[in-house]
Structures are given as structure tokens and as C-alpha cells.
Amino acid sequence: MSVEELLVFEHGGTSWGVARAEVRGFGAAGGGVAVTLRHGRVRADRVVGMLPAPVVARPGRVLRRFWPVHARGLAVVGGRVVVVIDPLAPPPGLAPEIEGGADA
């Protein structure tokens, strides 16, 4: 099994992750970090780092019932639970801008 590497960052008290392949760059953004992705940008309070994520499980029904937010999956990375976002549809409040990238 290939171990996916995720860029893990924190925002709003939650740990988020995005596939490393989606990440294009970083920039400062109002006290935080603006992560430039292939298809947009997301805002991070703090970037934890690139961490391996062996398992990325899809959100179950119960979770979807109580948190109807689109996410690619959930993973436990470095002892923390990370919500892996879909770079094309990040959760609201995380990525207000979507821009066309080089690979769009």
C-alpha cells in the first residue's frame, strides 16, 4: 500500500490535510499561512508539516449525518485525527477562493 503524504495544517482547532501533490506553495496571509493548491488556496493557522497517512478512510454515514460537509476522508496522522480535504471542494471557511491552476 502506498502511503500518501499529506500536508497537515491546523485551522479553527481542527487538523486538516491535503494531498501533497495538490500543494503548490505557501504564502503569508494575515497572521496565518496561505497554502496555494493546484486548484485554489486554503488558509491555515499553522502548518504542521508533510506527514505520511497510511489510511484515509471515507467519512461514515453517522459522521455525514452530523457533519454534512464534503471531505475526501479522515486519517490518523502522527496521533492526530486529520480531515483530508478535497482540494476541489474544501469545506466552507477553509478555502474561500478557488482559482484556476496550472493543471486545471
Partner: peptide, 16 residues
Amino acid sequence: THPLPNAAPELLGLAE
């Protein structure tokens, strides 16, 4: 638990 944004009040968050 780690809370999730915009979650229902019953959902405390995610735990490991």
C-alpha cells in the same frame, strides 16, 4: 475530541 466546523451540536468531534 477535535471539533469539526459547522458540525451538529450532538457531534462533539473526532477522536482517535
